[in-house]
Amino acid sequence: MTFETRLTDTAAEIGAALAASLAARGDEPVIAAMRYALEGGKRLRGFLVLESAALFGIERAAAMPAACAVEALHAYSLVHDDLPCMDDDDLRRGRPTVHVAWDEATAVLAGDALQTLAFELCCDPRLGGAEARVALVAALARASGAEGMVLGQALDIAAETVLEREGRRLTLPEITRLQAGKTGALISFSAEAGAILAGADRAPLAAYAAALGLAFQIADDILDVEGDAATAGKRVGKDAAAGKATFVSLLGLQGAKDRAAELVAEACAALAPHEDRAETLRAAARFAIARKA
């Protein structure tokens, strides 16, 4: 089985589990918007949860609630990021964004509900004892809040003010810090989830995830330049049009590609303690910079 097939099959599996989690919750507009927001996507974050759990002998069914949790959290972030007060996007995964398909108020509430669903899923007894579940909740809270994803989004918004008032774009260290939160924090949680559930050493997976998260974002910046909107499922060329600092604008297109490749090598090397058992995670790192969407 190729990596792409494994990822696709896992995405379908996670999608079915997410649908089941909402099956008995009615058909109110906010619930319908949640279902809509959860559809599609590569499910790479959920995939990383399941594969990191497998390193420690944790069965897929036992780790599935955590995989669903991070995908629900990620979906909430996309719904809110697309709002007019944030990135103001009208296309996501090849379809109208939630606030376009419904309205802004419904999008805000659907995002809020997806966030709370994520923490509800982290409390599922299938994940193990109370200590493991509390550790998972704490890790997801740190990754998604003011020390992680939300901080990254706040820094992204602040960067627009820097551009307008000071006439300068962010430096490489500044954009690296921004993206470590906005994109990297949830990827780090996902890759470390297996170790969290197993109560094991998280250091190798943390190093892997830090490199992977940055490589993933660099690949996104490259796709914004070279990608096709129909394939990517979202608008491309927006960063350059807005004059935003990206890894491509700072390093050049080839420089960005070279840096992404270096990061993938770092990510793969970090998994050495897990030997051949981590080969699927290494394939995930290589996929992160080879994808077209």
Rank of each mutant, 00 (worst) to 15 (best):
T5K: 08
R6E: 02
A11Q: 12
A12V: 15
G15H: 10
A16G: 05
A20L: 09
S21E: 06
A24I: 00
P29M: 15
R35Q: 13
R45E: 01
F47A: 04
S52L: 14
A53T: 05
G57C: 08
I58D: 01
A67G: 07
A67T: 05
A69Q: 08
V70A: 09
V70Y: 07
V70N: 06
A75P: 03
S77T: 15
V79Q: 06
C85Y: 02
D88M: 08
D88R: 10
D89A: 15
D90M: 05
L91G: 03
R92Q: 12
G94L: 06
G94I: 07
V98Y: 09
V98Q: 08
H99Q: 10
W102L: 08
D103R: 08
E104N: 14
L109K: 12
L109Q: 09
A110V: 11
D112Q: 14
A113D: 04
A113H: 08
L117C: 09
L117Y: 13
F119E: 12
E120Q: 12
C123M: 11
D124I: 13
R133Y: 04
R133H: 03
V137C: 15
A139Q: 10
A139L: 12
A139F: 14
S144V: 14
E147M: 12
Q153Y: 05
L155P: 00
I157D: 04
T161M: 14
V162R: 10
L163N: 00
R169T: 09
R169F: 00
T171M: 04
L172R: 08
I175C: 01
I175T: 06
T176D: 11
R177C: 15
Q179C: 11
Q179Y: 11
K182A: 14
K182D: 09
A185T: 11
A185C: 14
L186I: 12
I187V: 13
A195D: 00
I196F: 11
I196L: 15
L197S: 04
A198I: 10
A200L: 01
A203P: 00
Y208H: 10
A211D: 04
L212C: 11
Q217L: 06
D220C: 01
E226H: 07
A229I: 01
G233N: 01
G237A: 07
G243M: 07
R259E: 02
L263G: 01
L263C: 03
V264R: 00
A265D: 10
A267P: 03
L271C: 08
H274R: 04
E275P: 00
E275W: 03
A278R: 09
R282L: 05
A288W: 02
I289H: 04
A290L: 07
